[in-house]
Simulated assay, not measured.
Amino acid sequence: MNPRPCDPDRPAAVLFDRDGTLVEDVPYNGDPDLVRPLPGARQALDLLRAAGIATGVVSNQSGVGRGLLTDADVHRVNDRADALLGGLDTWVYCPHAPDAGCDCRKPRPGLVVEAARRLRVAPADCVVIGDIGADVLAAHAAGARAVLVPNAATRPQETATAPSTAPDLLTAVRRLLGEGPGDRP
């Protein structure tokens, strides 16, 4: 595992939810042509890359387990998102249906733990940025920090109970880097 960064508040890696956080949420999307980055997503990732912070995606893709998508569909969509966003260091997804009882599906910690392992950092040195409570819960279950970036899919209770929120992705990343107004998430 890599040592902690010089600034103990600065993460070694930032892990993002995919749909509704980095790209527009198209339910059960298997079509790469429908991938649209959200405003500020590319710029936020560029800032992290410039700061030498590893990036990854942790995403539930239950459409595979439900028979609505194939693994190949998910890979094509992820590849398109990766190209539009300038490249992330790892992509990890859960292909299981919600009732499968797997350890990887958020809010369980498996995706966060696996992404951290692939990036050779401790989960405690990661921040997970997502748009729903399951993202926050997965981060905490893995021992990582979390930042909630609410959108129309975020329930008010999730926002109220999140330990850290930001109005948008770019603000969340700037705060992590100590470049934005307000306290660090």
Rank of each mutant, 00 (worst) to 15 (best):
V74I: 13
G30E: 10
R117G: 09
L148Q: 04
V23M: 07
A13W: 04
S59G: 07
A138K: 01
A160H: 06
T159H: 10
T171H: 05
R66A: 00
P37K: 13
A122F: 00
P167E: 13
D125N: 07
R66Y: 04
G87L: 07
A12L: 12
A134D: 15
P107Y: 02
D131E: 00
D31R: 10
A97M: 04
N78G: 12
L177K: 03
T161G: 09
L148P: 03
R80V: 00
P123S: 02
E24L: 14
L111Q: 14
A153K: 15
D31T: 03
H75Q: 14
D89V: 06
R49F: 08
L48P: 05
D73Y: 01
E24T: 13
P109R: 03
D82R: 04
V127Y: 09
D125A: 14
R174L: 13
A13M: 08
R105I: 02
C126A: 12
A83G: 08
A166P: 00
T159M: 14
Q43D: 15
P185A: 12
P107E: 12
C6M: 10
A153N: 13
D125I: 05
R184V: 04
L137S: 13
N151Q: 07
A50M: 00
W91Y: 14
G30C: 10
R108A: 15
A144G: 03
D125C: 05
V149G: 06
P181M: 10
V149Y: 01
P123F: 07
L85G: 01
R80M: 11
A97D: 14
A54H: 13
G56K: 03
P167R: 06
D17S: 04
I53R: 01
P39I: 02
L69E: 11
A152K: 06
S164D: 14
T90Q: 09
V127G: 09
A44Q: 10
P8T: 05
E24R: 15
A134E: 15
D33K: 07
R10N: 05
K106L: 01
T55D: 12
N29T: 02
H75E: 15
D46G: 12
L22Y: 05
L34S: 11
A12H: 03
R42A: 15
A142D: 03
H96G: 08
L148K: 04
P98L: 11
P156Y: 03
D9L: 15
R145T: 00
V26Y: 11
P109S: 13
G86H: 06
L85P: 00
V147L: 04
P185W: 06
P150G: 07
T55K: 04
A152M: 03
V173D: 06
P185G: 14
A44C: 00
C94K: 11
V127S: 08
L176V: 03
L169M: 01
R4P: 14
D9I: 01
D9K: 13
P185H: 12
N29F: 00
V35Y: 11
A12T: 06
G182N: 11
G63F: 06
Y28W: 07
R10P: 11
A51C: 04
R10A: 14
F16H: 05
G86N: 08
G180I: 07
D89R: 05
D168Y: 06
I129H: 01
V112T: 02
E24V: 11
A13E: 09
G87Y: 01
R49E: 12
